[in-house]
Design a protein around this nucleic acid. Sequence first.
RNA 1: GGGGGUGUAGUUCAGUUCGGUUAGAACGCCGGCCUGUCACGCCGGAGGUCGCGAGUUCGAGUCUCGUCGCUCCCGCCA
Length: 589
Amino acid sequence: MRKTHHCNQLGAEDAGSEVVLMGWVQRRRDHGGVIFVDLRDREGLTQVVFNPDNDAQVHAKAHALRSEYVIGVRGRVTPRPEGMVNPNLATGAIEVMVSDLRIFNPAETPPFMIEETVEVNESLRLKHRHLDLRRPRLQKNIILRHKAGAAVREYLNGNGFLDIETPFLTRSTPEGARDYLVPSRVNPGQFYALPQSPQLFKQLLMVSGFERYYQIVRCFRDEDLRADRQPEFTQIDMEMSFIGEEDIMSLSEGLIAYVFQEVLGQAIPLPLPRLTYTEAMDRYGLDKPDTRFGMELKEVSDIVKDSGFKVFADVVKKGGIVKALNAKGCIDFSRKEIDDLTQYVAVYKAKGLAWIKVREDGWQSPIAKFFTDDEKARLAERIDMAPGDLIFFMADQPKIANEALGQLRNHLGEKLKLIAPGTFSFTWVTHFPMFEWDDTEKRHEALHHPFTAPLEADYDLLETQPTAVRSRAYDLVLNGFEIGGGSIRIHDMALQSRVFKILGMNKETYEGKFGFLLDALQSGAPPHGGLAFGFDRLVMLMCGESSIRDVIAFPKTQKAACLLTGAPSEAATVQLDELSLRIKATAKV
RNA sequence: GGGGGUGUAGUUCAGUUCGGUUAGAACGCCGGCCUGUCACGCCGGAGGUCGCGAGUUCGAGUCUCGUCGCUCCCGCCA
């Protein structure tokens, strides 16, 4: 018996032919006489029929069938009787009259139904992931993921990129995320690190002259998990030589457009819109703006800086900003709803949330009395107030005010249903700052990574005013998610050394950690740059999912555990001995 | 490390407000009947460590404390 068709293939035109189908019993409907079985494989469902008049022996055998039994059937494709066609099924015009049945394997009753209709607790799904993966949603997601990966390879192969593998057992580097460490047996007391990304290797491949590299590659970061963050995740990693921002951005856009066209049949108009980091922060408060809806932020610091409202005036005097968000037509928000929103922004360290309800006959607001008529008029114009509007104000240091109001904007966009389902809204964000001052560590940190090139126009500011230096980094944002990011790299040893110094690394430190990179930069390094896409996030958005767990075949829980295999687990003493490791007594077992 | 949500039958949930008889429903499962169903139908049945552990109480699914899992978020994530 050999499978001749998938369960989505047969139609009226196949009537009369003898076929063999194999798959799982989705559902059985036993009428005492005739028995119907919906047979499922990865492609679809076909109704197969056991009729005692046709073959009493096979019919008797079919009584034993239960959900998820794995069977093979041989039979004749038959048009369904008049009025029995099922329009909801791709193969609904026909059925297969079974003449031979093989039960390859019976199955226990599954812990949850293998169908879409029930939402099942996620820990149960993860424990029985092999069963969860049988369900239509994950089947669809995993297949879409495959198609997206295939399209990526097609596009990059066709554009002169070489797929080159890089090591997983590599060296721990300072900065960035916490590394996953792997002890070395042959070098007691020493460790490899799993790569947070193949960053340095791909730069070295450019130095080696490969010109265009890509890899769909696993990366590892030992940080706390989120709906869009797993400890191991997949990047589409790319690097190119002899190029600038424009080259890599247009190539990346082309890749995205190709993938969306091939996988979803969706045309993405190019070029994609661009925002500078400054514009993004100004208009959306976030460096990964959700551009699927408007409701942009407006800064009003200049209007309120001398106002009688001390909270606003003082914030501006201390270098802070005051920004406003106009929730159009939301005047009917209750006191409780506004309180809830205040709670919402408090998560982002906002100290309060001032508001104004714009009525036909004037403002209703706890803060209205503090403003002069002139200030009111200017605010009304700046914020585009109209009767029925609800205005929110945030006054704080720029970082907090932007973050809190930007998150509030996203929250309201969802709450007010301003986002049309199925929308894909891309934007580039460019000209990120090079450095950020870390107040805890009392030093500058690279916003992107230490190998990102500064904008040439800002070289002079490197030592004098590091936080004003803009970088040649760019992120690609889709629906408020950072789905990709990259930069033009430093290909000059002297410049790289200056950047390391600003990051607070002395010569010994960076030569010890990155000596191999500095050597490479002096060995004839071409100008180069690249970009990496978060493949899981991209696929998640393409699938319309809200967690990357739903596009990863075997994901981990928030505690970084695999409920299917039971990883992580304790190691045997013999193994630890071989690795010269001992577990601290204080470690929780 | 912190904050929120959640855990009751195989599954999804109700019951918890205000402690009180034998913890319910739907789906699934098992058995019987049924020859045109496709979420088949009808009849019958089984199935519970109320996450776990303490405590309060005459009595705890319900109250208190602790603990564990899952989840969302903050911190963290070059």
